[in-house]
């Protein structure tokens, strides 16, 4: 019987760490239903890590960062593309490659201000009326996401 294949045989190998810092950072930004950016070379990305917004330039130290709901901005020359992420992980490798995995992401300009306000009010009310810990936690997540959305739109 032939041994099964393993994932690495389906993957293009990652570039080795260059000796000098390259001028661009290579970004892979993936979602379950799409590869939003695939090995795209950009100047800088700003990642919403749980510890705060994190700017990543070429030659960044290798990092594993957990993400919180917030804005991911991709800077490419003068163009800035902004996405709102729900949550996920980001890996920054030594070879100036950044992998960003998110569960859900939308370009910021597609978010509707009114429904954000409505959702925020709804979940704030739910936090106050929650009786069990689970309900409270769920409502709190709703509030966090909506206030992050709100600040993303106003900021």
């Amino acid at each position: 019987m032939e041994p099964p294949k393993t994932p690495s045989s389906f993957m293009s190998p990652r570039p080795p760490t260059p000796s000098t810092i390259p001028s661009k950072i290579t970004v892979n930004f993936v979602l379950p239903y799409a590869s939003e950016l695939a090995t795209k070379e950009v100047d800088m990305v700003i990642i919403p890590a749980t510890t705060g917004q994190m700017g990543v330039l070429p030659g960044h130290v290798p990092t594993i960062a957990e993400l919180k709901p917030g804005i991911l901005s991709v800077h490419e020359g003068n163009d800035v593309t902004k996405y709102f992420l729900s949550s996920g992980f980001a890996f920054i490798h030594a070879n100036s490659v950044a992998d960003i995995i998110a569960v859900e992401a939308v370009p910021v300009d597609r978010i509707d201000q009114n429904s954000v306000q409505k959702g925020l009010a709804e979940f704030t009310q739910k936090v106050n009326s929650a009786s069990t810990d689970l309900e409270k936690a769920e409502a709190q997540i709703g509030v966090d996401v909506h206030s992050a959305l709100n600040s993303a739109l106003s900021g």
Binding site: R14, N28, I64, F89, F91, D99
Partner: peptide, 21 residues
Amino acid sequence: IRAENSRGLWQPFTALLGDTP
């Protein structure tokens, strides 16, 4: 189409944690 779109999803993990069959 959906399967092909989801193929990017596991690659970062394999890049980070390696493939250890």
